[in-house]
Design a protein around this nucleic acid. Sequence first.
DNA 1: TTGTATGCGTTATCAA
DNA 2: TTGATAACGCATACAA
Lengths: 341, 341
Amino acid sequence: MDKPSVTSADVARLAGVSQSTVSRSFDSSSRISDGTRQKVFAAADELGYQVNKAAQTMIKKRSDLVGLVTAGLADPFRSEFLNSLVLEIQNNGLRPMVIDVSDTHTIDVQLQSLIQYQLSGVIITSGTPSEAVAKTFIKRGTPVVLVNRADHSSEADIVNLDNEKAGALAAEALMKAGKRKLMVVRSKVASYSSVKRTKGFLDKLSPFVKQGSISLEEAFCETGNYHGGAQFGADLLASKHYPDGVFFCMDCIACGFLDALKQSNTLAVPTDIAVIGCDDISIARYQSYDLTTVRQSPQKMAAAAVSALQKRLKQPNTKPIQQKVSVELVFRGTLTESNTL
Amino acid sequence: MDKPSVTSADVARLAGVSQSTVSRSFDSSSRISDGTRQKVFAAADELGYQVNKAAQTMIKKRSDLVGLVTAGLADPFRSEFLNSLVLEIQNNGLRPMVIDVSDTHTIDVQLQSLIQYQLSGVIITSGTPSEAVAKTFIKRGTPVVLVNRADHSSEADIVNLDNEKAGALAAEALMKAGKRKLMVVRSKVASYSSVKRTKGFLDKLSPFVKQGSISLEEAFCETGNYHGGAQFGADLLASKHYPDGVFFCMDCIACGFLDALKQSNTLAVPTDIAVIGCDDISIARYQSYDLTTVRQSPQKMAAAAVSALQKRLKQPNTKPIQQKVSVELVFRGTLTESNTL
DNA sequence: TTGTATGCGTTATCAA
DNA sequence: TTGATAACGCATACAA
């Protein structure tokens, strides 16, 4: 059954040229006479020739595979971001290989095994690898891009959202709306983004807290998803100790919280309590939530990550770049713009 | 900067054995004396040896990459399914390469180019490839698994949800609840799943329609997502021609519809109108929707697809298998079980 | 501009 | 059980 695959030698034979000429014809930077190239392409077309990436990788010491390291991909924001990354990688003539490291204990072993693939790069969107592993790749000449991860000393390129700005924007909007009893909520399981967002929020408010015009509380929910937010909302309502403005470090938590409020019907949004989320996942736009949030652009993040990777492939020895991608506040129903005027 | 990579020859030198012995030590089916294997592993560990998959692929004529063909991955159901597929593939010692064919015009060219990678298999979850392309792979000995796609004549293995059963279950539940003016809604852009679900719904009801006890209408929304459902809901309300029970072929459409109802506040769910969705995406469980739906298991689908692939890798010449994965009705707020008693 | 020859790192074949 | 050797298909250095 197995059809022996078509090789460049087969094409060469049919085109009446040498194998190396065939190889060169497919390399745009090689100078080949127009006539020969035509002949080669025609022969290749006729035979349905496709280059063998494995053989190519042997020579070039680099496949065009990009490792996409993530912890799950069903989370709303994560899936939007991965979608953008996949497209961006494809558009750069590369191919995404997805690695799910939901099991954070084995992440180093898993990443080590990626060396097998002669990857063109690794984009880590989740699960902090030990520095040693990142260095292993970089020493090999495999670019590593860290997205929204803390990393101070490594030689990896870094793309971050402007997380602190996100927190600051939320803080500003709540203040402008006249809210005074503020709260910031994130998942108990710390993530770099959430910590930074919280920091931006707190820093913006700290002068006002000191002068006593604003009260501020930091709170945590059990899980960083809808259900964590719903549980958090129920607990908060039971405590009867309500803030009048809350910033959630993730939209999905905010949505759970809003549903908890809706069910109890004790607090009106945004009059009694204003809610701001972060990310602008597609659900935030659904009428049931209509969530005011700090938007980030997955496309921009993906483009920044892939371009960092491409740059390093071309210039391996420049020093690491760190990029911050901008964010913007989007007003919707849970804190309207008119509230802030 | 580039560290030359560690090869099996390096390991052989350190372990004091031949290169082929190193290779065999990593192949569990090779008989190697325990002592030598220990020595080899120790040396490999010390050097941080990882097999070069490119070289391996050259010989074996097969990489352990599995192509995952999809059209976008941010859609709620799709991302859950891909998540399951990625995990299942990883757990089988394979690696997922994601191919986004959102641009349906170029799908054949895109798939052809996958030949470059000597894939162990291709799982097509979206975008119908021409039969010719599928055959190209199969002739090469690359298994193709079609998931939820129509395909009658090809030699590919097929995994389908029991889509007709899904429609039938919805129809039954609506009837049992005493609903008589029924409607089934799907996206204008036909998908195999939706067409089959609709068929299951219609077939189940057709005897009752003939005898006049049930009225039945088929309707379409512009897009197969939340916004399509919201628009559809608004239009339906404007028409003032309401059914008392609706089956949506996708949960996300149903959620949009529910939000449209909620906003207008003219019809109560489920008393005036019962709503059933399909898939059981995570949003269906959110309190704002609390959607009764026909659940499918992405895990089961993924497991079936990957196991079909593995079977064919082992036995390439058996005839194509077709599997149907079961579904179940999940009662929630938009049609409660007590309604049906 | 083109052809010849070489090697990439592995597995498979054969001999010891 | 082990070692020597021959592919696999390509890109590249060198020769022409």
